[in-house]
Amino acid sequence: MIDVLFFAELQENVGNEKVSVEADGITVTELKNNLLSTYKLDTLNNAMVAINEEYARENSVVNRGDVVAFIPPVSGG
């Protein structure tokens, strides 16, 4: 099981700050595709990704027990 955390508008679109995904040994890209097929997350591909509180790349591998966070870009004014 992988815990996925969402922030800002991603959290609003999912309707929850965290979901659990049954997966092991998948890439961030594969995880994103899984989430995109389940939720309406138009800005997911613009979000930064962290695995276990360390920034990750699209080809980083996510394993069972990991916590993945999707952090959309922020703007201020």
Rank of each mutant, 00 (worst) to 15 (best):
R57Q: 14
D66F: 02
D3F: 11
V19F: 08
A23T: 04
V67S: 12
E9S: 14
L5A: 11
D24I: 02
G77D: 07
K18R: 15
I2S: 01
A8G: 08
E12P: 01
L10G: 10
I71Y: 08
A69F: 12
L41Y: 02
G77C: 09
E9C: 00
E17H: 14
K32A: 11
S20C: 06
V21L: 12
V74Y: 04
L44D: 00
L44R: 01
E58M: 12
E17N: 14
R57H: 14
T27M: 03
L10W: 02
D66V: 01
Y55G: 01
L41A: 07
V62A: 13
N13W: 08
A56P: 07
N34P: 00
Q11T: 08
L5E: 11
K40M: 00
R64I: 06
V68S: 06
E30A: 12
Q11E: 15
M48E: 10
Q11S: 13
V14S: 06
V21P: 00
E53I: 06
G65D: 10
L31M: 08
L5W: 04
K32G: 07
E53C: 04
D24Y: 04
I26Y: 12
N13G: 11
V14C: 09
V14Y: 03
V68I: 11
I2Y: 05
I26T: 10
V62Y: 03
